[in-house]
């Protein structure tokens, strides 16, 4: 294997890991509430900025920043669910309305970030310094850690929703509100919890991303578009399919950057998505809508 190929594979792994974490957060809210959370990317941004404030501005260290960023995003998620999603549960056009209210939430967070923290670039420190050499190809320890953290997070998320009673109650509330209520599940709490979980995951992802890229108020918007491509390909229905699609996109993107270059990669990714959709309107891995 050539060095370029190894570098491509490593880069695909890092990208795929980040996309998987973003897209699985979107998937949690979608499968529980039937809402596509446009504010997901902005919650990542919020998490990164709060982490920066705690870690760098107050000098309390990255670990504290990571926790604070995750919690702040989770809290914002609860507020979004309570104010912008819950009032529309019984609305016939809930899907469209919540696209618009969460879009509004995205604008509020994004512009709010700009007003609070200003437009100057910031950066979070890396989890660990140094580089690793894999078959002669360099990868930073930080990125290697992301590649490890992502599957652990995803498996934890899967185990929570599939194995624990609380996690199962989220899925149950998503599949049948009435039946869930009858067996004693407090459905609004389940919805709030799903939102908090997804938003917390977004915040955590934002912290990881914030030490690879510079912090800007739009830190999360480009990744959000990628995460959308992922959920279009993988469908929104199951965590496994979403994670699978994330790595497919991650590797494809790394491969395209290598072969056609950075400029044409987005177009070709989009084209791939369209071609898949023409043959499989419910996504590459999506069985049903």
């Amino acid at each position: 294997m050539t060095e370029a190929m190894i570098a491509t594979i490593l880069s695909g792994l890092v990208l795929g890991s980040l996309y998987a974490m973003m897209a699985s957060g979107l998937s949690v809210v979608w499968t529980t509430l039937g809402v596509f959370n446009f504010a997901h990317g902005a919650l990542m941004t919020l998490g990164a900025y709060v982490a920066w404030t705690i870690s760098e501005y107050l000098g309390l260290g990255l670990a504290a920043g990571m926790v604070a960023g995750t919690l702040a995003a989770a809290l914002a998620g609860i507020v979004i669910e309570r104010l912008l999603v819950r009032p529309f549960y019984t609305n016939r056009n809930m899907l469209l309305i919540t696209v618009m209210t969460t879009l509004a939430a995205m604008i509020i967070i994004e512009k709010g970030t700009q007003v609070i923290w200003g437009p100057r670039l910031k950066q979070l420190p890396r989890i660990a310094d140094g580089e690793l050499f894999i078959f002669g190809s360099a990868i930073s320890v930080h990125e290697a850690l992301i590649v490890l953290i992502a599957p652990v997070t995803l498996i934890a998320l899967w185990a929570f929703t599939a194995r624990t009673l609380t996690g199962r109650s989220l899925r149950a509330a998503g599949q049948n509100q009435t039946a869930a209520a009858l067996i004693g599940i407090h459905v609004p709490h389940a919805y709030g919890l799903a939102y908090a979980l997804s938003a917390g995951l977004a915040g955590f992802t934002g912290v990881l991303l914030g030490s690879i890229r510079f912090l800007t108020p739009t830190l999360g918007s480009e990744p959000l578009v990628k995460a959308m491509t992922v959920v279009i390909l993988g469908g929104l229905g199951s965590l496994g399919a979403t994670a699978g699609a994330a790595f497919v996109i991650g590797f494809l993107e790394a491969f395209l950057v290598l072969t056609v270059g950075l400029y044409w990669t987005p177009s070709l990714l989009f084209l791939t998505m369209i071609v898949v959709l023409i043959f499989r309107p419910n996504g590459l891995f999506g069985g049903r809508s």
């Binding site: 899907l95 469209l96 696209v99 929104l236 959709l277 309107p281 809508s289």
Partner: peptide, 8 residues
């Protein structure tokens, strides 16, 4: 259909 129209 539905959300896929929004996304695409």
């Amino acid at each position: 259909k539905g959300i896929y129209v929004v996304l695409v």
